[in-house]
């Protein structure tokens, strides 16, 4: 029943995808276009099994960077959001600073990270977190403060202390907002990790792409790209799944 519905919904996507692949393969085969400009789909598939490239290691590195960036952004974002919603004093101190930080083109900071921290997984995690944390701060603060006045009155009727109202009313109210911002963070973490690897790395899928610039092995770059989007999609899917399980009452909010 359900698979049938899925098949009905997605068959146009599949048909289009397969046709595009076919057109691509035929174009490359019959137009004589150079392989370093546009590799054929078949050669990209071959690149996946390229024995000279330690794929597992590169995927591992990039995945770690993305996961680290995601959780770092989530943790720091939620903490800052809570602090901002908790006290107007903290909000006044932090918000202008955070807004300034957010207006910085974060990609431009990556070379500085190299200077400060050298090569490694951590600076690239930090890059991803830097790009991805801001929406979490905003959504957390908004979700914590945009509680119906009546709901807060409900808490006050029972003389509940501030922290209890925070735990039982404000935080659950903010949960859908936070989860929705984490979808953005999942995407940002991927961008950050790859940007970090472009600037400084000795391993990772972004590193694979930079090496193909000199080797002209474009099919390798394509293969790396596909891996990157696969990792990104899995992370995004997991966030959506967790959001659905964790905040089932908020369906249709985003």
């Amino acid at each position: 029943m359900k698979t049938k519905a899925l098949a009905l919904q997605y068959w146009p996507t599949v048909v289009l995808f397969v046709s595009l692949l076919a057109i691509w393969q035929l174009t490359v085969t019959y137009s004589g276009i150079r392989a370093y400009l546009l590799p054929s789909p078949m050669s990209v598939i071959e690149a996946f099994w390229e024995p000279d490239v330690p794929w597992a290691q590169h995927i591992w590195t990039t995945t770690w960077e993305i996961i680290g960036a995601f959780f770092l952004a989530a943790a720091v974002g939620v903490l800052l959001g809570v602090a901002i919603a908790w006290s107007p004093l903290i909000a006044n101190a932090l918000v202008p600073f955070l807004v300034f930080l957010n207006t910085l083109p974060k990609v431009a900071v990556a070379p500085l990270f190299l200077v400060w921290m050298g090569y490694g997984i951590f600076p690239n995690m930090l890059m991803g977190a830097l790009i991805g944390f801001f929406p979490v701060v905003i959504n957390t603060a908004v979700g914590l403060s945009q509680v119906e006045a009546d709901m807060l009155d409900l808490g006050r009727v029972f003389n509940a202390p501030k922290w209890k109202i925070f735990m039982k009313i404000r935080i659950p109210n903010a949960l859908p907002y936070i989860l929705s911002s984490l979808k953005i963070t999942a995407t940002a973490a991927v961008v950050g990790a790859i940007v970090g690897e472009f600037v400084a790395s000795q391993s990772g899928l972004g590193y694979v792409i930079t090496t193909t610039q000199s080797s002209m092995n474009t099919s390798l770059a394509f293969a790396a790209l596909i891996w990157i989007s696969a990792v990104g999609l899995v992370l995004y899917g997991l966030v959506v799944l967790v959001a659905r399980l964790w905040a089932p009452w908020a369906e249709g909010l985003d």
Partner: peptide, 12 residues
């Protein structure tokens, strides 16, 4: 207190 609206917490 019974408010004019039910004000139930929608996650509970």
């Amino acid at each position: 207190m019974v408010f004019q609206q039910p004000i139930l917490l929608k996650w509970r």
